[in-house]
């Protein structure tokens, strides 16, 4: 029965992927991309990788889908012609080559367990009980630190697209929501639930699936829906408090990592302190990830027309 489910899931994944790259129109391609992300998230659940599934659903399907939808809407507003999505022969061959090479490597990885046993043996020293969090924030803290900086760099690149005279404007496009409409009602109902879920995901990350990226994405979504409904004012890119929120995660990560120098080495967390250090990093990282993702979706500052 589960084999049947897996086969159907694989077929759906392939169909969604094909529809996303072969579909007519950018909007349709984006919708299928989101559908593809959801099937991939389900596949990760079936493989027992709940952490990856959460990340794929929240960031791969949800946030990336939202970014692409925003790009499609922007292209339409700008009156850009719908350029053909049909892939050329060379990109198709290149993509097929990459897919083939990835599959070949995946099949040649020795042993079925991967690094599971090594990670499991070192787990008691990591300060957390969830092996994924142990890898992300302790064993391979470097990667996560650089990732958080890359995220910030991406936002800077988006902001760099603003023209000089637009710099004074709040971020994002002008938004219109009817006062007292359904969107506003939703935006008042959802944040309390969303904030609890987001904070829970971060806290739970120490011992079960969850973490700063997943929790941060949920919090970003909460902020975005409040912004869409016009319940919170959008900040200007030169707002000091927002810039602090954006930089806090990588900065605290670096500080905590550097304090490891006194205790053994850069980004080395001694077992007695590891839990407190990791939690501190995660809290600030969540703040920065939530702020960065929400501002990425809103895009560069855009001037409002005078009423």
């Amino acid at each position: 029965m589960t084999v049947l489910f897996d086969l159907v899931l694989c077929a759906l994944m392939l169909l969604a992927a094909l529809a996303a790259i072969g579909g007519r129109g950018l909007f349709r391609a984006t919708v299928f991309f989101v559908a593809y992300g959801i099937t991939v998230a389900l596949a990760w659940v079936r493989l027992g990788a709940i952490d990856v599934a959460l990340a794929e659903a929240a960031i791969g399907a949800g946030l990336t889908g939202l970014l692409l939808l925003g790009a499609v809407a922007r292209l339409r507003r700008a009156g850009a012609p719908e350029f053909p999505v049909r892939a050329g022969l060379v990109p198709a061959l290149a993509a097929a080559g990459v897919a083939g090479a990835t599959g070949w490597v995946a099949l040649r990885v020795p042993g079925a367990g991967g690094l599971w046993t090594e990670a499991g043996e070192a787990l008691p020293l990591s300060g957390v009980e969830n092996p994924v969090t142990a890898v992300l924030l302790n064993f391979r803290a470097w990667d996560t630190l650089l990732e958080s900086i890359v995220l910030l760099a991406a936002l800077l690149a988006v902001w760099a697209l603003a023209r000089e005279e637009e710099w004074e404007a709040p971020v994002g496009p002008p938004l219109h929501a009817r006062p007292g409409g359904v969107l506003e009602g939703m935006a008042r109902l959802l944040p309390p639930v969303g904030i609890v879920v987001g904070v829970f995901l971060v806290w739970a990350g120490a011992s079960q699936p969850g973490g700063a990226f997943q929790g941060g994405t949920v919090l970003a979504a909460v902020g975005l829906i409040a912004a869409l409904a016009g319940l919170v004012a959008l900040p200007r890119p030169d707002s000091g408090s927002w810039r602090t929120a954006l930089a806090a995660g990588p900065a605290v990560f670096l500080l905590v990592g550097a304090s490891g120098l006194a205790l053994g080495g850069l980004l080395l967390f001694p077992p007695d302190w590891a839990k407190a250090m990791i939690l501190t990093v995660e809290v600030f990282l969540t703040l920065s990830i939530a702020a960065t993702l929400a501002l990425l979706v809103l895009g560069p500052p855009q001037p409002r027309r005078m009423p």
Binding site: V182, G185, M186, V193
Partner: peptide, 17 residues
């Protein structure tokens, strides 16, 4: 129950929009 309620609210909102 939370999943059901959230999906219900989201479906209602999206239908309106």
């Amino acid at each position: 129950a939370l999943v059901w309620v959230l999906a219900l609210v989201a479906a209602g909102l999206v239908a309106q929009l």
